[in-house]
Write a protein that binds this DNA or RNA. Structure first.
Lengths: 246, 246
DNA sequence: CTAATTTATGGTGAATTTTACCATAATATT
DNA sequence: AATATTATGGTAAAATTCACCATAAATTAG
């Protein structure tokens, strides 16, 4: 928390790897793409197996280098669209990793081009997401709790994204970006449980709290899913939600 | 909230300014440096007047370009240390702005070097902060509500940082990074009022809530400040705070 | 010196929210 | 027809928030 008085020391006077010439960068965008399998209650993240060095044959987050004339967010959408086809998603910037030598291609002594990674965080609708990258053996959903050692600092980025996802879910309506247009209250509950852990809240209290927020519209339509009383289908009312914020 | 089906269209097929060659970047770091003048109850941000084009004579956030071998955070500390001398501060990364043509130096048609801005957010102890940049007419604290039109997209970065500051104050103990080692409960209250607005909470209730959190140690020492009953000096107990988190 | 003013502190009780349950309804399964 | 399962709409206790108040201990005003 406290930053100690080292602040006024000049790094360039102590670290022989720092000189006053400016660094030249290529900028990469790495996406942490989450989805929730509501059938099996699993939180998934999309990984790709690298074909080239560095980290050949390691799994990694989908990434790309930013092209001339392309914005960071465009690059994030592009890499996403190259790997999966999906219509409903939420996407926002996560964090920028840019320490020197994060990429082994950057030799420690030579001051060549550096690689910066701007990470984005996405949540997509699992049911409609179609993996389109080839070969299929090189792309896969992994359960977040079962991801292996990844390339670069991607485990760190993933962990950061996972924290962001949990926070976002608690105070913003991103769940309704990836739920179907019409859903039951139990659908919402299952999604929250899958992301936040089994025992995050009592179902009955969760329902009451959700309805009290006032932005879920009961369509009146009932659906039966296996045993039990049929459940009402609800819709998210984005306008009502906006009005709440003011 | 919803991202519409434009996602699977290739930007490069529609935007003539995009081609498949990679962009080359210089990376800048821009700091939003806040402090709270507890005497006058003003929330301040540090601005510099630019000497060169683009935006010559505009006020701007302190920024620098990242050097070879220098991490992003090192660059943030360096630019801060060049402008002010301070021992107590909080610093974290804010957001990365990197759309094409954010810098007028980037000609719209030529695909020359692009400039990326990684912004950092800092809160420093106002009383000990000493401005060291010269000439003094080119550096100044501005009240956040009185900031003029700034260079680049710096007004946007400032607004983003201001939101982050308000959020951070509500759920993390950054206030104690810039308060003196020993402080009264009123000191804390004034800081919160200055940042979050006059009527954010009742003083008596704020006190009760703060003490109930259990990480403020009463030193027993009393101080008199003008009229009124003397106040107790408290210390922030970082260890007790950590224990709360588990 | 005395009274008024000012600030700190530690309350109260009402209103609201959270929490742990429970009862019933309406379906599928046995 | 009985049982199991899920949805729904409750309850009441516990905890928290909120508006407000009383007293203590200092300075300041008269």
């Amino acid at each position: 928390m406290k930053c100690k008085p080292t602040i006024n020391t000049e790094p360039s006077e102590r670290n022989p790897l720092v000189n006053k010439a400016l660094a030249n960068f290529k900028v990469g965008v790495d996406n942490v793409i989450f989805s929730v399998d509501t059938q099996l209650n699993r939180l998934l993240v999309l990984l790709l197996k690298r074909k080239e060095e560095p980290f050949a044959n390691y799994w990694s987050l989908p990434g790309t280098l930013v092209r001339q004339g392309e914005s960071l967010q465009d690059a994030a959408y592009r890499i996403l669209a190259e790997k999966i086809r999906v219509n409903n998603l939420y996407l926002e910037q996560l964090y920028t990793f840019g320490g020197p030598r994060r990429d082994p291609r950057e030799a420690p002594e030579s001051f060549g081009v550096r690689y910066l990674s701007v990470s984005y965080f996405a949540l997509v609708r699992y049911e409609e997401a179609e993996l389109i990258a080839r070969p299929v053996s090189n792309i896969s959903w992994y359960q977040v709790k079962e991801v292996p050692k990844l390339a670069f600092e991607h485990n760190q980025i993933l962990e950061y994204g996972y924290q962001r996802l949990k926070n976002k879910l608690e105070y913003s309506p991103i769940a309704f970006d990836v739920l179907p247009e019409e859903f039951t209250l139990n659908d919402v509950y299952q999604l929250y449980c899958t992301v936040l852990g089994e025992n995050f809240a009592d179902y009955s209290n969760f329902r009451a709290r959700l309805l009290k927020l006032g932005f879920l519209l009961d369509t009146g339509v009932k659906v039966c899913r296996g045993a039990g009383r049929p459940a009402s289908l609800y819709r998210f009312d984005a306008k009502a939600f906006q009005d709440k914020l003011i």
